[in-house]
C-alpha cells in the first residue's frame, strides 16, 4: 500500500527562470485513483516526472509512504508508469518489453502471458512494436505498467491522441487491472470526462505556474462508462 504526499514549494523549468509549479501540495491515500486535470502548460507532466523521481531539482518534498524520495537511493514503492506515447523499445519484442521491467525470473513468463491475455494481446508475444497498431502499442505499455505489480502507478495522458473507441477500451482495461491490484494511481489528463470516468478524486491545477485550485470527489459507482450524449459519466454531478 502506498500513500503519497506532495509538497512542492517551487519548481523551475530547466530552461530559464520560468516557474512551472508553485506552492503545490496534495496527498493521495493508499489505493486511491486520483486524476490531475489542468490546462495545457500547467506543469502536469513536470509534476508527474517529479513524483516519478526523474526530476529532483525542485524546492519541497515528495513523500512516498512518509519517506522522502529525494533522500533515498531506492524508491520506496514499486512503481509502474505510462507516458503520453507508448515508449516501447522498438528492438525488443512485446514479451521482451515486459521482461525488461521485471527481474528475469522463470515465473515471469507465466505472468507476462497472463497480462498479455488481459490486454487482449495473446499470441503477439514475439511481435515487435513496429508491427503493432497504435492502440495495440498502448495496450503493451499498459501491460508493462502493471507487469511490475505496482503499488504506485503514474500515468501521463496515456490515452492521448487515440480515437474514442480505442481510448474507451483502454480505459476499461485499465479499470480491470486496477481493480485487481488496487495500486495508488496518479493519472494526468486534460480530459475532464476521462477523469470522471476513472478517478476517485479529481485535482484541478491552475494555469502556469501550476498549483492546486480545487479538489473534487467522484462518488459514482463503478464501472462507469462515458455517456457521450451527456458529456460526462452517467450519474455524475459536480458539487
Amino acid at each position: 500500500m502506498t500513500d503519497l504526499a506532495i509538497n512542492i514549494e517551487r519548481k523551475l523549468y530547466p530552461t530559464g527562470n520560468i516557474v512551472a509549479l508553485k506552492d503545490l501540495s496534495f496527498s493521495v491515500e493508499s489505493g486511491k485513483f486520483v486524476a490531475l486535470v489542468g490546462p495545457s502548460g500547467a506543469g502536469k507532466t513536470t509534476l508527474l516526472n517529479t513524483i516519478l523521481g526523474l526530476d529532483k531539482h525542485f524546492e519541497g518534498d515528495v513523500l512516498v509512504n512518509n519517506q522522502s524520495m529525494k533522500e533515498l537511493e531506492d524508491y520506496p514503492a514499486r512503481v509502474g508508469c505510462m507516458f503520453q506515447d507508448p515508449r516501447l523499445m522498438p528492438w525488443l519484442s512485446v514479451a521482451q518489453n515486459l521482461e525488461l521491467v521485471l527481474e528475469g525470473r522463470s515465473s515471469d513468463k507465466g505472468h507476462i502471458r497472463k497480462l498479455l491475455k488481459q490486454v487482449e494481446l495473446s499470441g503477439r508475444e514475439a511481435s515487435y512494436p513496429d508491427q503493432l497498431s497504435g492502440g495495440m502499442q498502448r495496450r503493451v505499455a499498459l501491460a508493462r505498467a502493471f507487469a511490475v505489480k505496482p503499488n504506485l502507478l503514474l500515468m501521463d495522458e496515456p490515452f492521448l491522441s487515440l480515437d474514442e473507441p480505442s481510448a474507451e477500451r483502454l480505459r476499461h482495461l485499465l479499470y480491470l487491472l486496477w481493480q485487481e491490484l488496487r495500486p495508488t494511481v496518479v493519472f494526468v489528463t486534460h480530459n475532464l470526462r476521462e477523469a470522471l470516468a476513472l478517478a476517485d478524486e479529481i485535482i484541478f491545477l491552475s494555469a502556469s505556474p501550476g498549483t492546486v485550485i480545487r479538489r473534487f470527489s467522484v462518488d459514482i459507482e463503478r464501472p462507469r462508462r462515458l455517456d457521450h450524449r451527456r458529456q460526462c459519466p452517467a450519474g455524475a454531478s459536480v458539487a
Binding site: G53, L54, V79, C81, F83, L100, V101, V148, L154
Partner: peptide
C-alpha cells in the same frame, strides 16, 4: 526515462 521510471 522509461528505464529510470521503472528502476531498471
Amino acid at each position: 526515462d522509461v528505464a529510470d521510471g521503472f528502476r531498471i
